[in-house]
Structure formats: C-alpha cells, structure tokens
Amino acid sequence: MRQVLLIIDVQPSFNPPQWLVDGITSLIGRMPSVASVERHDESVTPFQRQLGWQPAAHDQSLVAADRIFIKHGYAPTAEMLDYLRQLNPERVLVCGIQTDTCVLAAGFALFDAGLQPTLISDLTVGSSLDRSGQLGVSLWRHHFGHVVSTQQLR
C-alpha cells in the first residue's frame, strides 16, 4: 500500500512527550514523511490577540521528516496538500500534537483534498482540553472512519 506519514506540530512549543517523538521517529524511513511546524505570525493568525498565547516564531520539527512545511494556524498549507497529492498515496497516516485541534484540522483538509486520512491513534497527544487525545480519536473515527495503531503498521 502506498502510504505517506504526516506528522503534525511535533515541536518544542508544544512540549511533546518523548514516547511520541520516539514512536514517530521509528516510522521514519519506512515511507515518505512530511511534517508541519506551526510558527507564530500575528499578522497571519491572531493567537496572541484571541487566545493570549502563541507558538514560537522559529520552532523546528523534533522529527527528521523528508519534507517540512511551515504553517500559521491550525490547518495544513495549500503547498503541503499539493505535495501530498503529488505523492499519490492510498492513505495518509496522521500523527502528532493536539488530536482534537491541529491533527483534526489536518484530517478535514486531507479529506477535502480527496486523500484518505488515517489516524495513528497511539502516536497522538490531545490539547490541554483532553491530553489523552481520546476526544480527538472519537471525532476522527466519526468523521473519517480510518484509525490504526502502530501494531497494525508492522
């Protein structure tokens, strides 16, 4: 099966647990990989004004993906989606930070782009609302249906 790994916002600003970084790193090299890094630019996305918080302006990915895209806000960029479509995967395996926000936003963007988003449920961490990520996993299953674990990828 042609698969691509999409890693959402595994960067210092979001303080990912080491098990998440290690688990994602163990998949690097097994398939093409793409990562997003969310950076702050108040003129693009009003994090500070609306939420009183913002990611760092110069964060880097903690996972060495084949390709890294910078984004401002929750959703993947048009350039990232174009790149993923060019790879022509049968499914896009999604993992990373904030299952119920940025990861879910990626799922909607992938779905709307005609790709098959598939969540790796044990390689995701939720937002401060639900750090377990279970809310996001439930929403993902409801909207997209496709959820796997790392055991199923072996």
Results as ranks from 00 to 15, higher is better:
G136A: 08
S121T: 09
T99V: 05
S121W: 07
T101P: 02
P76V: 06
G145P: 01
H143C: 12
T124Q: 04
A35Y: 00
M80S: 09
L93P: 00
P12Q: 12
G52E: 07
A35D: 02
V37M: 05
L153A: 01
R49Y: 10
F69T: 07
A109M: 01
Q54D: 10
L135P: 03
I7N: 02
G145D: 02
F14D: 01
G107D: 01
H143S: 11
A78P: 08
F108C: 08
V148L: 14
Q48R: 15
V94G: 01
L104M: 12
R30W: 07
F47D: 11
Q151N: 11
S149T: 14
G133P: 00
P32A: 05
I120A: 03
W140D: 03
M80H: 01
M31G: 04
S127L: 02
G73L: 07
D66A: 07
Q98I: 10
F108Y: 15
S121K: 14
D122M: 12
A35N: 00
Q60F: 13
L51Q: 10
Q11S: 10
N88S: 15
R85W: 08
L104D: 03
P76K: 04
H40W: 13
V37I: 10
V21F: 09
R85V: 13
I97E: 11
P16N: 10
P55F: 07
N15D: 14
L6T: 00
H72P: 11
A64E: 12
L87G: 11
G23Q: 05
L110C: 01
Y83E: 09
D9T: 08
W19N: 15
H58M: 13
V137Q: 07
V94P: 00
A106R: 01
P46G: 06
F47H: 13
W19K: 15
S128M: 12
S61R: 11
R39H: 05
P32G: 00
D22P: 08
P32R: 01
S13R: 06
D66E: 10
R141T: 09
Q60M: 14
M1G: 11
G114C: 06
H72E: 12
D66P: 07
Q86G: 15
L110I: 03
R49D: 12
L27C: 04
R67C: 09
R154G: 14
G96R: 03
T150W: 08
Y83S: 08
I97H: 08
S121I: 08
R85T: 12
